[in-house]
Amino acid sequence: MRRIVLQLLLYSIAATLSGPLYATELRVAVAANFAETLTEIAARFEADTGQPVTIIRGSTGKLYAQIINGAPFDIFLAADSRRPELLENEGYAITGSRFTYAAGRLVLWSPDPDLVDVDGKVLASNDFRFLAIANPRLAPYGEAARQTLEKLGVWESLRGRIVQGENIGQAYQFVASGNASLGLIARSQPLSSSLAPAGSFWEVPASMHEPIMQQGVLLEDTQHARAFLDFMRAQPAVIVAHGYDLPGQNTHNAYSR
């Protein structure tokens, strides 16, 4: 009996040690806003090919720092184009693999069904105390929110009433918890959330800000990784259904009221 236990123990240790060496694990690091969409694509990929996909979600800045410090990821799907470009120039990504997989869009959202009007004029009013956005210095959606508010001419006057989440996820959560009355969030968020999107929306026209180009790069040139990227490119419907635009196309039907 004791020998069997010992054998089992040794076997499990050996299995643990050898596991990562032989498994063809595919690791995809993804900006938090795209994680839900990626989960759906990865599930389809797994069903199709039997290849398991491990998803590592984080902010684009943190994942970038992890990658240049040797994190073992095969693919990086960022929320911007700057970090993938840096990785490519610095030699951490496979040259020529960079591509735009989705274009982000903003919506102004409030859980209050009467607060936000179809033209977003509420932003120039005093009908709310706090507007949540992502940090413009850190998050591409925050930068787009700043550009939008500047274009509307309210950026200066809203100073002190703008609260910043460190990423678009936190900005969403500030509004969802009721602490901010409304927020400029990613159009994909209410669609990906388990909570049904309720309340009032203004879909910010794409012309209000520089395009939010979400780019991906290949970090390890493996067959599995290339197969996954090809698979992802062949799934535009999933990406659009989650509230993103495809590069070069604008859609407006996410929140038909």
């Binding site: 943190k62 210095r137 002190g160 703008i162 609260v163 910043q164 989440g165 460190e166 602490n179 901010a180």
Partner: peptide, 26 residues
């Protein structure tokens, strides 16, 4: 502070958050 501050300069933006912003924006 990160959870309840909202990073408002002159009101709720404290030093530790400022450092975090600097690091994250390289």
């Amino acid at each position: 502070v990160l959870m309840i501050g909202g990073n408002i300069p002159g009101s709720t933006q404290v030093l530790s958050i400022a450092i975090y912003d600097h690091v994250e924006s390289l």
